[in-house]
């Protein structure tokens, strides 16, 4: 009985998501993000069109599907948000503190520019095949650090990412859990973030997803654009290689 119940739940949620695809409020964030990308801003009044996301200055199309990656100018592996912060500091002249401000928005009175930029940049990778390389030693290291973080059990509840995301066919309450240790689970999960999260009324990024997982794992707060967040993103993005990116999506 529980098996049949679980399968019909999966089907119904899939139907719900398909019905909500048209008119995804994420498009509002994408439009705002595109405007921010093209705008001259910061003390140096430079636009993001000078920012290199890995495929050349200002090249947005397909860039997200290749992130995280090593950037020689920074001599580190960066995910999208880390790279945007880098461009805000180096190109636009913001202080790092200012660039890291307000990563997660809350209503129309407290919008996050970062989330809008993420919505725009990721939308330009929709349909692109996930293609995260491990060609530089630091990329390789980041992947292995992400894997280590994935299995790190801590906090009063002894939770690791693997506690919920380490097996096939499990769910928490009625929310199905992708197995992120395997290719299929990582592909389905990673390619649908960022997403308009209906329950939040906000466009939420992968950085937010990691932050919110750790909150529920009873860990202290994951710092926005920190090394651990990039390492985990590297681990999951690489595991998702081979399928088309399909975000911004819409979720409950």
């Amino acid at each position: 009985m529980p098996c049949a119940f679980a399968q019909s739940t999966v089907d119904e949620i899939a139907k719900y998501r398909a019905a909500l695809q048209d008119g995804n409020p994420a498009e509002l964030w994408e439009a705002r993000g595109e405007a921010l990308w093209k705008q001259k801003r910061g003390p140096k009044q430079v636009s993001f069109e000078q920012c290199d996301l890995g495929l050349g200055a200002g090249v947005v199309k397909g860039a997200y599907a290749r992130l995280p990656r090593y950037f020689a100018d920074a001599d580190r592996v960066m995910d999208l948000e880390t790279r945007l912060v880098w461009c805000m500091v180096k190109l636009q002249g913001y202080s790092e503190a200012d660039a890291l401000k307000n990563p997660f928005g809350s209503g129309n009175e407290k919008k996050s520019d970062m989330e809008a930029l993420v919505a725009y940049v990721t939308s330009e990778s929709r349909g692109a095949k996930m293609n995260v390389a491990l060609s530089h030693p630091k990329e390789e290291q980041m992947y292995r650090l992400g894997e280590k973080m994935f299995y790190f059990r801590g906090g009063p509840h002894d939770f690791a990412c693997a506690t919920c995301h380490g097996e096939d066919g499990k769910r928490i309450r009625l929310q199905d859990l992708p197995n992120l240790t395997g290719t299929e689970g990582a592909q389905k999960a990673y390619t649908t973030w960022p997403a308009y999260r209906v329950s939040q009324g906000e466009l939420r990024s992968f950085q937010w997803r990691l932050y919110d997982c750790f909150r529920q794992q009873r860990f202290p707060e994951l710092i926005f654009a920190s090394d651990a967040s990039v390492a985990l993103t590297m681990f999951l993005a690489r595991n998702a290689n081979g399928v088309a990116f399909d975000a911004p999506a819409i979720k409950r």
């Binding site: 509002l28 439009a31 705002r32 209503g107």
Partner: peptide, 26 residues
Amino acid sequence: MADPMKIRANLVGDSTEVKVLMNHEM
């Protein structure tokens, strides 16, 4: 301050289909 609406209007046969996404706290 609300973001601009996203409006799409397409002629399908003899009727126009309009889809509007509005930004509002509601």
